[in-house]
């Protein structure tokens, strides 16, 4: 289905499907809900105002993910430059943890994962976030990041290697 980003019907269709994905991408790059919301808002406003034709919802999704990822990375770069921003973002409210039987991953593990993802170098972080949180395959990631599929494969592997070394496996609990 062809998508015209400035047509309300198309916009809503894409928004409904893609918002959770881009929110996840923004969040797992910045780990701040308010910043992520701003980023997603900015991405969708650009999407709406640019009036772009996409061949499919997926094409629109890849465009939005790319824009969101870039915005989020920029925020993080600015954050590292401005010490004030660091403190502000560190104070981000913790993500509410699911309780009871629903909880697949406990809150401590989530925190550990978060800390590990935050420490990843930008190139590896982008690939890992798109792989683990946007549920994209290597080909889709390669299209979004404009890198080769084999490069994606290598980066996924390197990112996981670093993640593993940072996460104490003893503390990873999967129920």
């Amino acid at each position: 289905m062809e998508i015209k980003s400035s047509e309300n019907e198309s916009f809503r269709l894409v928004y409904e499907e893609v918002f959770p994905v881009v929110m996840r991408v923004a969040y797992h790059v910045t780990y701040n809900m308010d910043v992520s919301e701003d980023i997603c808002q900015e991405a969708f406003i650009r999407f709406y105002e640019k009036n772009i034709d996409f061949r499919s919802v997926d094409e629109a999704k890849y465009w939005l993910i790319r824009v969101t990822k870039n915005l989020a990375i920029n925020v993080m770069k600015r954050k590292s430059r401005e010490q004030a921003m660091v403190d502000k973002i560190k104070k981000a409210p913790k993500v509410p943890v699911r309780n009871g039987e629903d909880a697949l991953i406990d809150s401590e593990t989530r925190t550990l994962v978060r800390e590990a993802v935050e420490k990843l170098p930008e190139k590896l972080k982008s690939v890992l976030v798109l792989k683990e949180y946007a549920d994209l395959n290597y080909k889709q990631i390669s299209g979004i990041l404009h890198i080769s599929e084999s490069n994606v494969k290598v980066r996924v592997h390197r990112a996981r290697k670093i993640m593993e070394s940072m996460l104490d496996r003893e503390e990873m609990h999967v129920s």
Binding site: F19, H28, I105, R110, Y133, E164, V174
Partner: peptide, 26 residues
């Protein structure tokens, strides 16, 4: 490792209020 990392994701119910808010703004 994959299950733990991927499972530590932002959940749908955490996203929902933001999804609503941003849509209303736009």
């Amino acid at each position: 490792l994959h299950a733990v990392v991927s499972g530590s994701r932002l959940e749908e119910q955490e996203i929902a209020p933001h999804k609503e808010k941003v849509l209303q703004f736009i």
